[in-house]
């Protein structure tokens, strides 16, 4: 019975998503929306399939750029978070700095990167790197800082060193926070990459969309959006799966994370 219930839920969710696109299609047909304003989903799919061989290198470019920036951001974010979360002084000094830095619109940062490194892949990697540090740092730091002192006492009473406590209690305890931040960070990383590609690059989906816009090829613009959305969703799913495997202990209340 439970299995059937679950299947029913999944089918309902899929039907709703499908319904969204069907409604979009119907509204476009009924109101005669011109494709230059809002192309129908079927037209977008057609364009996507027809142009896919041309789009593929750009997809690979954007994906690899994003993953590079993301990997750097997560590594640095994790280290910073560990420092900020385990030391009071670091917490007090680094937090205002971080908040200030992350409040700067990243659009404003791209030209600086271009100035330093020239246009192309490097500014895109750096933009996505910069944009995904913040959520990782904040979450890892929060996870470490909110570790129950009782759990630490268990190890302290055994004579454990600070490093052992961090390794055995702090880090596992911060894992759910870390994975939650990964899901935010990966979507942000795409934003960063596409932003930089739009401004200063001659490759990547951002650049394709930019050129398509200037030539009023709206279906192609939407194809780009579709591709970005699909990339984002699939990476999100991958991290959700890893998260469930690693931090299942923190998720026993709901199955939402699996969705």
């Amino acid at each position: 019975m439970e299995f059937i219930d679950k299947m029913r839920q999944k089918v309902a969710a899929a039907a709703l998503i499908l319904g969204f696109f069907v409604a979009w299609e119907i509204i476009c047909i009924i109101f005669g929306v011109p494709e230059i304003v809002l192309p129908r989903p079927t037209l977008v799919m057609d364009t996507l399939i027809a142009r896919f061989p041309q789009l593929l290198p750009h997809v690979i470019q954007t994906l690899s750029t994003t993953l590079a920036g993301f990997a750097m951001g997560v590594t640095v974010g994790m280290l910073l978070g560990a420092i900020v979360g385990s030391s009071k002084v670091a917490y007090d000094t680094a937090y205002p700095l971080l908040v200030g830095f992350s409040s700067i619109p990243k659009v404003a940062v791209v030209p600086i990167f271009v100035l330093w490194f020239g246009s192309g892949t490097v500014p895109a990697v750096l933009t996505s790197f910069v944009i995904c540090i913040f959520p990782v740092v904040v979450n890892v730091a929060t996870g470490l800082a909110t570790t129950e002192p009782e759990l630490e006492d268990v190890l302290k009473s055994l004579g454990a060193k600070k490093r052992e406590i961090l390794w055995n209690v702090g880090i596992p305890r911060a894992m759910p926070y870390f994975f939650a931040s990964l899901k935010v960070a990966i979507t942000l990383a795409f934003v960063g990459t596409v932003l930089a590609e739009t401004i200063a690059s001659n490759r990547g989906i951002g650049n394709v969309m930019m050129i398509a816009t200037s030539s009023f090829d709206v279906p192609l613009v939407f194809s780009g959006l579709f591709l970005l959305a699909m990339l984002g969703v699939s990476l999100y799913l991958i991290f959700s799966l890893i998260e469930r495997r690693v931090t299942g202990w923190a998720m026993r209340k709901s199955d939402l994370s699996a969705a």
């Binding site: 009782e150 268990v154 209690v169 596992p172 894992m175 923190a250």
Partner: peptide, 10 residues
Amino acid sequence: AFQNPTMLPW
């Protein structure tokens, strides 16, 4: 041993 069992949940 503490008043709370303080088991590590993971």
